[in-house]
């Protein structure tokens, strides 16, 4: 493997890891606070991608500035998280927190199936492709390889900003502190006046919006197709389990490991590409069942 291929694999891996991280960190945040493993999380990713690609296609065709592609992603992510994620938590999940884990997973799986059909209904099965954002940022040449600035710089920067923003938000803002308090002890939080139901709702919306943002960003680099949500949820489950449930920084590092592992496999042993994330997961979980960064008594968020 020469230097150029090596560099290519790294850039590929990092930019892919950035997307996976956004989805996985939302999943782990929701799990850390609500203690629900949300199978429907991948659907927010897919719907975020569909919304961005279809709305983007329409507004660029109508002659609007291509730079709108970026604010559009944020708006789409927040709208999907709030308008689809919000009601799912408020009217459905809030009723099943007392149920066993297996039943909760079944319910969120049902939500996933419904949202899959919803996507087919709204966007059909034709792939959508809308790369305005990608083209808008141009290309960069490193080590003699030309790469899109979008993947080389923009995606990793967004991921780092989200990571830092989440950490600071949880530590420094009142809402973040309330989330941390409810996570540690929901009942004690209630006895000092914290509206735990609202905290759950906000957390779910933030987590769902992050997944949708991942999809919005991904839509510029790849075709938006049915099934993309399922692929992503499986991968982000692998990341979250490898890192340890509820681990935010852990999810970032693990996403990077899995992203790089996967992209190196593409160049070295392409048949293994799909399997590599799960091999990493099994390898880690065999040695540390609580995940790389999970404590025995899992410290959540």
């Amino acid at each position: 493997m020469n230097v150029q291929l090596f560099a290519l694999a790294i850039v590929d891996g990092v930019s892919y890891a950035a997307l996976v991280f956004l989805v996985a960190v939302g999943l782990t945040l929701i799990f850390g606070v609500l203690r629900v493993l949300n199978v429907a999380h991948g659907s927010f990713y897919a719907i975020g991608a569909y919304t961005t690609a279809s709305v983007g296609g329409a507004i660029f065709a109508a002659g609007f500035s291509p730079w709108l592609a970026f604010p559009l992603m944020i708006v789409a992510a927040v709208l999907v998280g709030t308008l689809i994620g919000g009601p799912i938590e408020k009217f459905l999940l809030s009723r099943i927190y007392h149920l066993e884990d297996v039943l909760q997973i079944l319910v969120t799986f049902a939500v996933f199936l419904i949202l899959e059909d919803f996507q087919r209904l709204v966007w059909g099965v034709q792939p959508l492709f809308e790369a305005t954002a990608l083209n808008q940022l141009g290309t960069v040449t490193v080590f003699g390889i030309t790469y899109t600035a979008y993947q080389l710089i923009f995606l990793p920067v967004v991921a780092v900003l989200v990571l830092v923003g989440l950490r600071l938000g949880l530590r420094r803002t009142l809402t973040g502190r309330l989330i941390t308090a409810v996570t540690e002890d929901r009942e004690a939080a209630i006895t000092i006046g914290i509206d735990a139901e609202k905290v759950y709702l906000i957390t779910f919306i933030v987590g769902a919006s992050l997944a949708a943002l991942g999809g919005a960003l991904a839509s510029a680099t790849t075709s938006v197709v049915p099934g993309m949500g399922a692929d992503m949820i499986v991968l982000s489950f692998a990341v979250v389990a490898t890192a340890g449930l509820g681990q935010i920084e852990g999810a970032a590092i693990t996403a990077l490991m899995i992203g790089l592992g996967r992209s190196f496999a593409v160049y070295v042993w392409p048949e293994m590409q799909v399997l590599v994330p799960y091999l990493i997961m099994f390898g880690v979980l065999l040695v540390r069942p609580q995940g790389l960064f999970g404590g025995i008594e899992a410290r959540k968020i």
Binding site: R177, E184, D185, T191, G193, D195
Partner: peptide
């Protein structure tokens, strides 16, 4: 009154087992 709104009425409660938030 919803449980989370009761403290706001001026009720302070210290549980038997302290229940502090260890991260703060």
């Amino acid at each position: 009154v919803a449980p989370s709104r009761r403290p706001g009425l001026g009720i302070g409660y210290a549980a038997e087992d302290r229940r502090l938030f260890s991260g703060f």
